[in-house]
Structures are given as structure tokens and as C-alpha cells.
Design a protein around this nucleic acid. Sequence first.
DNA 1: CGCGCTTGTCAACCGACGTTCAACAAGCTG
DNA 2: CAGCTTGTTGAACGTCGGTTGACAAGCGCG
Lengths: 208, 208
Amino acid sequence: MPAMAREPAYTRLHVDERRRQLLDAGAALFARHAYEEISMRQIAQAAGVSKPLLYHYFPSKNDLFMAAVTEAASELQDRIAPSGEGTPVEQLTASLDSYLEWIEDNGETWSKLMQSAAALPQARELVEGFRARTMDMVLAELTGRRKPRPALRTAIKGWLGYMDAAILDWTQARDLPRAKLRDLLLAAFVATLFAAQQVDPKIKLSLG
Amino acid sequence: MPAMAREPAYTRLHVDERRRQLLDAGAALFARHAYEEISMRQIAQAAGVSKPLLYHYFPSKNDLFMAAVTEAASELQDRIAPSGEGTPVEQLTASLDSYLEWIEDNGETWSKLMQSAAALPQARELVEGFRARTMDMVLAELTGRRKPRPALRTAIKGWLGYMDAAILDWTQARDLPRAKLRDLLLAAFVATLFAAQQVDPKIKLSLG
DNA sequence: CGCGCTTGTCAACCGACGTTCAACAAGCTG
DNA sequence: CAGCTTGTTGAACGTCGGTTGACAAGCGCG
């Protein structure tokens, strides 16, 4: 029964601030551990907050995860957006450089996120959407507005898979300078386009 | 309190039979649903057996999954093993045909397995091992016993990613005959090798 | 000052999960 | 038929994501 002035039992924040804080806490944990390895209790605890409050701001673990990933993805998407200047190949070079630079800085985050995303249907759709937008950007430069022929579409999706696998190998082995990897991805891109054209000669391309 | 002869509460099987039955039941479920979507209860129930018995034979869900996947993977590995006859390109063509044929027959199983494997570290290692063996098979034909240069290794891992992505697109869209896809993969393979050589001219290749 | 609205805590609970344990029962051997 | 091995089970544990309801602390406003 101490009658003296106690320090406040907790600090009160405005809704926006609190939401930001929780989102950041979640993002920080999801960046270092896979989705399944993190519990809502841990996230609440890391933010110094009770579990029901966390649920008050994010109605489910999935929502919190998606909010964090969507934010990161849109930042990344902005980063690799083509400037609109230069030939298609120059634009792709610039985008690749930005992308690889980000991954070089956040290698673990990238791999953990890819791992988590593989398990959650919603997150898979997000990655799928990210790829679809990237593919559309590429296709718009290559073929204009025409609907691509199946072999070309498959080839470009294949190249996106090539990117992921090559980048994963790069982050693990670290025996290739970034510029070399960029050149390899670029050369592989052009090469796979020619391969697709060889399989389906009706494919028309306008490379710079 | 029926005094008459009751039918036995359960039927007893020999260890090998029971294990086979449980493994098959698990494999059948994992082939149609992702890892997280299947519970040990469901597997036990599907086999007409209690949960603890399932645990008696497979000490954890992970073990059961790995046992099922390992079995399937080794069957597949045998299937795509090169015959040893013909030029490297001919052998690769034959292996690709076997692989694609299997996937055309078991498309859903393939995608569910890839999805599940992405989430589990152990399963990822298994897929990684599968790829490593495939890559070694390829490299042995291309460069003999020499240790590959980094750019070549990255390029081949990239091409394996190209395969996965292209095949995934193929199983979803189904607008490409199998032979066309095989030709596309093959052409992409040769093309990415040349791309790697362009980035690192020291790479020596011996294509048939 | 006091009142009320918002923000927050706490303890307890739910059903489902993976996993474990003590005890029962089926079938072989003597 | 007794007794042993061992295949098998129902019940329970701890943790997870998620929910409920009652209540306290901070802050603005009359």
C-alpha cells in the first residue's frame, strides 16, 4: 500500500504509433526467423505489450505477417522499378543492380522471407504477384501490349526462377562479385530469350 | 456384458506390414496436401490406427514426412539417371523426358511436395541434395572431374531453378506440349552455359 | 476537479496441434 | 491354460493461434 507517486504502469501511445511499433517488432522478428518459429507471444513480448493488444491491432498472425511483408515488398518494388530511360537492356541492368544491392545488404532477411512465404498461401500469392508485375514490366518492353506466346511466357517465368536460384547460390557461396552476377543474370536473360525463339520462331522481340 | 466371443478389438500386423501401411497412408496424404495441412490424427485415422501407434513407428511427423519423401525422391532419381549412352545432350534429353513424364502423371504431387519441402529445413536439404547430385551428373559430362568455376556452378544452379519455375508454369497453364517444354529447357540449358562462358571466358566446356 | 472515452492489462479459456505415458489386449510359447 | 512379449490404445501434457470479459490507467473536456 505505498501512497507515494508510482511510475505509470504502462505508457500510452496513439493508435498510429502503436501500430507502427508492433509492425516494426513483427518485421524485425520475421526478418530473422521463419514464420513458424515465431509466436505471437514472442512478438508481443518483444514490443513490451500484452498478447490481446497485439490482436487488437492485427486480427491474426497471418495479417501481421502479410502487413510486414507487403510493406517490404512495395519498398523493393519501387526500388527495382525501371526509370523509363535508356534501352530495355540498360533499364534491366539498373533494376538488377538495385535488386542485388538490396539483397547483399539484407541477405538473411531475403532467404528467411522466401522460406516463410513458401509455406503460406497468401504470401505465395504476394510473391506471385510481385513476379507477375516484374514479368509485365519486362514483357512491356519486349513485345509491347501483345499477349505473349506460351513459350515466351514460360521462358520468362523460368528466368525469374533462374534468378532466385542463382541469387540463393550467390548469398551462400559469396564467391562472385555483385557485378559479375549481374552480368551473368543479364546474359542468361538474353540467352533464354533466344532459346525460346529457337523453340517457337513466331516469337517477335524488340531488344534495344 | 456380452459373454459371447467378441471380434478382436484390433488386428495385429507384423512390423514390416504395419510400417509399410502407415508409410503409404502418409505418402498418399502428403501427395495431395501440404505438410501443414495434414495432422498426425488424420494420417492415423486414414490408416485405421491410433495416434500413438503411428508415433511408435515414426517418432515424429517430420520423420514420417522425410521417410515418404525420401522414398519418392529415390525412385525419381533412379528414373532420371543417365543411361551412359549417347552424347551429353542426348543423355540430358532422355533424362528430361523421364522427369517431365513423371511430373505430367503426378503434377499435383510434385507441386505439393515442392511446397511442403520449401518450409521444412530437413526437406530443403533433401531437395538440395537431389539437386547437387543432378548437378554433379551434369558437370561430370561437361567438365570432367575438375572443380567448376563459380560462375559455371551458379549458372547451373540457376538453370535448375529455371527448370522448376518453367515446369511450375507448365503444370498450371498446360498450354505447351511436353516435347516443346523439353526443347525449351534444353535450349535454355545450352544458352545459359554460353552466357556463363561469356561472363567468365575461362570456363571450358565439352558439349557433344 | 471530476467525468468519460480511449487505450491498455490481466487471467482465464477454447479447440487443435505434436507428442508422451501407463496400461490393456492379441498372439505366440511353454 | 499361464505367462510373456509386444502391438496397440485412451487419456493426458504443453504449446500454439485466437477470444473473452472485467477492470485499470492515461488524457481531454466541462
